[in-house]
Design a protein around this nucleic acid. Structure first.
Lengths: 347, 347
DNA sequence: CCGATTAGATGAACCGGTTCATAGGGGGCC
DNA sequence: GGCCCCCTATGAACCGGTTCATCTAATCGG
């Protein structure tokens, strides 16, 4: 406090000089190398403390190889689902000495490819990401040739990579079984892009639930490429304005429930009474809306935790051989937004 | 495609060798240094493309100084407000060639100090962050002595630093003026930690709105250290169970509206009719709840945009002298959750 | 008392770029 | 023809650590 603050960065050399030893010795002290005498260690430690030395991770990384950074790239991180996922993953990485590096893919394959290159240039130790189009050859190739281990988030198209997924198939199927069981025969489905695992699984679950009852869903009731609340608003309006509108909706696109609710409100359709509704992911909005909206739920923290742990294992080379795929279960939280459909012809 | 893929990283030296020039020349080509002949440039570029050379940013950073990384540390990034803010800031940084590095402070001063040290060790070019306790000497000192420019997010305690804030004072004051204007005289306030700018401002706005009408608020109606929905639930229960409960609530803690709504529901209190309610930050839940909840709103994207731009300016040394402080305005979005209080003694 | 062994410290090479002092070649000018 | 200058390329130092071959000194066995 009393003396002038040294402004220039203190380097390993300065510490070595102050302690009267070689730079290599200081480095060994820092790395807890056992081949250093206790007395010297004490002296070096004293010099480190006295000078307020801070290790330069950039320099360390250049020689050592590891940057202790993990990259994460997702479509959009103001989607609450992703935020909870990342929160938990970051916690685990931080506790293990890794720093998280965050980028948005903006849902464009060329951005995804260039991000992977950028991660390589930064020498990150691991990568967690989603991709917008699983059929895109360039992206798949970039993933397989990435300079660091890659863990796919809710994607399933590269068998060589570790991946953490959600059982969207089971979620959609059970939601549909519930609605069909209530007597609904025209159920609308809002999903994102079927080029990616979640929406593809949901459509499949939707289909299979119909098939197992020997029903064939009207293809016109499946609306794709719903990415935000505006899309959901528009598609809900379109669905409900059909000559023969659906009697129930599964709003399965990420974080788009609000758009559908606004549309139904604008049309004067009351949830539960006029149209049944299931949300494809749970939220406070679903829980506290009147009526409370039945929703498909899964554990986001657990997903983030597993993803981080799996990637850490892989980065440390602790994983023996085959890539691991984890699929988290979903639960249908039944609330008050679904009833049997009004009987045909009645009003 | 046809030939074997080279697995080892291609280095500058390899490119130089392939092009028959010196490494320095290749570096000059990469950095668009004008002192390089067009023909040589073409030849080098061809070698770069042929070998699939990728620059190593770690090595570049070691010599060059700049890592082109910006660190961001906030309390918790599954708070939707922060997510929107970061989304926009990340976009701008990415477009300017910077990578975002994300950490959670978990609201602990010692973590904040150690994060600042870690950012220094990583040689980040800039830092955006919040702190949990503005009175904490160690944190303030660490902020001022940080190795990179710091921009404070919604904090106002270090005059030497750039900062982007929200006018929580004005927001709380106008909300209170509205409620007091409706006739409410016992208004409950839920805020976070008054050690930090947002909650302190809100309490001040709450007080001043009372003072300007020569009213003195009951201190027992101000509940602090509300951080999550559980806290909000508990404190709302407590407030509404007072012998003389408030007739209106301002739930001003971040992202805690759901907790209060749950508590009111549990108590059988109907929003609007039994108790008036204002949310301290807007959300889909506030908008779509029944009744729709009056809320204080501000532009999160604009906040992120300004923060990123200001920090970029500072990092580039384009800012002349004094630190800049920006305070974003708030708007009170009046919906259906507030009515005049029921008259005393009536039921 | 001597050679072998070992604990512990050293100095230099190395990681992969950037940059700067220096040098070579060619053209213009007197 | 000689001098100067400009254009361009070179090679080495440098960034700040890590690591390894090497060296010194101390210990131990016989």
């Amino acid at each position: 406090m009393s003396d002038e603050v040294k402004r220039k960065q203190v380097k390993l050399r300065d510490v070595a000089e102050a302690a009267g030893v070689a730079v290599g010795t200081v480095s060994r002290v820092l790395n807890d190398n056992p081949t250093v005498n206790a007395e010297v260690r004490r002296k070096v430690q004293a010099a480190i403390d006295a000078l307020g030395y801070e290790l330069d991770i950039v320099a360390q990384s250049l020689r050592g190889g590891s940057t202790r950074m993990v990259a994460c790239a997702i479509r959009d991180f103001d989607i609450p689902q992703f935020a909870s996922y990342i929160k938990e993953a970051e916690r685990i990485f931080r506790e293990n000495g890794y720093t998280l590096l965050l980028s948005s893919t903006t849902n464009k394959p060329d951005v995804e490819v260039s991000l992977l290159r950028a991660f390589g240039r930064r020498r990150v130790d691991g990568i967690m990401m989603t991709v917008s189009d699983e059929a895109h050859k360039g992206v798949a190739q970039a993933l397989e040739q990435a300079a660091a281990p890659v863990l796919l988030i809710d994607r399933d198209h590269v068998p060589a990579l570790d991946r953490v997924m959600v059982d969207h198939y089971g979620g959609a199927k059970s939601a549909l079984e519930y609605l069909l069981g209530l007597g609904h025969r025209r159920v609308g489905l809002l999903v994102g892009d079927t080029k990616a695992f979640p929406s593809r699984s949901r459509v499949q679950g939707f289909q299979d639930a119909h098939s197992s009852l020997s029903l064939t869903p009207d293809p016109g009731l499946v609306r794709m490429r719903v990415f935000d609340t505006e899309d959901a608003f528009r598609e809900t309006m379109a669905l409900m304005s059909l000559p023969e509108p659906p009697t129930a909706l599964l709003v399965a696109a990420m974080d788009t429930l609000g758009g559908s609710l606004r549309a139904l409100r604008a049309l004067g359709q009351e949830v539960g009474r006029d149209v049944s509704l299931v949300a494809g992911s749970d939220s406070e909005l679903a829980e506290l809306y009147s009526p409370a909206v039945t929703a498909i739920r899964w554990d986001l923290s657990e997903m983030g935790r597993h993803a981080a742990t799996m990637l850490l294992d892989r980065m440390r080379g602790q994983v023996p051989l085959a890539p691991r795929a984890l699929k988290l279960p979903t639960t249908l939280i039944i609330r008050d937004s679904c009833r049997p459909p009004a009987r045909k012809g009645l009003h």
